[in-house]
Design a protein around this nucleic acid. Structure first.
Length: 254
DNA sequence: GCCAAGGCAGCTA
DNA sequence: CTAGCTGCCTTGG
């Protein structure tokens, strides 16, 4: 539930929205735009997205039917069409890189913010387990809660929660369904086929005996290991026992 | 405030 | 080796 002090008590019947909209014509332009959200449609690998944004940045991304209803269910804010997408939105979607676009994440709990923050650091084409996020935010036991938080990610794709997968090798669930998750990952160049192969052999980490480092299989460092120097491990502990230290880039849990 | 329900993980049969 | 069962932690009702 979003708490916006600006809009306390506006359960927003249409009449009020209309009144506010009328007010906007005469009010200084900035005021109404601080209250309202604008929306656009943009293309994506999983079809057309509805994207809502405020003066602070993108606040909501939705795939499939019912964009406006879903938005209103979550935000007590009027929603109006926009002329153009907010700065950086299209590049961010194209490159899958963070920081190309501003986000409006007000109203989230600290926990959820931490989770999203961590998810945002996963590079395009790579994946990390839910437990990795839990570790990184200092709540190793909150694995399940991480899933819940990601499930409520207001800005999927922009914060790449689709890059968080289960530690048994299955892609896992997703706000827009696991099929969409898989399509997104494939579109980003993640080698899911290979991951499945490895998982079939109970291999969840790859190490290099030339560098002495152990990585997640999708880490760009792991992808460059020459086959004859590559060793698979089921756990980081086993890799450590064999003398490998965790990669400083992908940081598999020690 | 309590309870049930989650985008999971790890262990037991 | 897979299927289930049990713990864990945050949220929404």
């Amino acid at each position: 539930m979003t708490h916006d002090p600006l809009l306390e008590g506006t359960e927003a019947p249409d009449g009020l929205l209309a009144a506010l909209a009328g007010l906007a014509a005469d009010a200084p332009r900035g005021l109404f735009d601080r209250i309202a959200a604008r929306w656009v449609h943009v293309p994506s690998p999983i079809g057309e997205l509805g994207v809502a944004f405020t003066d602070q940045g993108v606040a909501y991304v939705h795939a499939g039917e019912g964009f406006a209803e879903a938005f209103r269910k979550r935000f007590a804010r009027p929603l109006l069409p926009a002329e153009r997408p907010p700065a950086g939105l299209l590049p961010a979607l194209r490159t899958g890189r963070p920081s190309k676009v501003r986000l409006d994440l007000r109203g989230l709990s600290d926990f959820q913010r931490d989770v999203l923050e961590a998810a945002r650091t996963i590079p395009r084409g790579e994946v990390r387990p839910y437990s990795w996020i839990a570790e990184r935010i200092g709540r190793p036991g909150a694995v399940r809660a991480v899933g819940t938080a990601l499930g409520r990610n207001p800005v999927p794709l922009l914060i790449p929660c689709h890059r968080v997968t289960r530690s048994d090798g299955v892609v896992g669930d997703y706000v827009f369904g696991s099929a969409a998750k898989e399509r997104l990952l494939l579109a980003e160049g993640a080698d899911l086929e290979r991951l499945r192969e490895l998982a079939g052999e109970r291999v969840f980490y790859l190490a290099s005996d030339t560098t002495g480092v152990v990585c997640f299989p999708t880490c760009h460092n792991a992808r460059r290991i020459t086959p004859r120097h590559r060793h698979g491990f089921r756990t980081v502990a086993q890799a450590a026992a064999a003398g490998y230290r965790p990669c400083r880039t992908c940081r598999p849990a020690a």
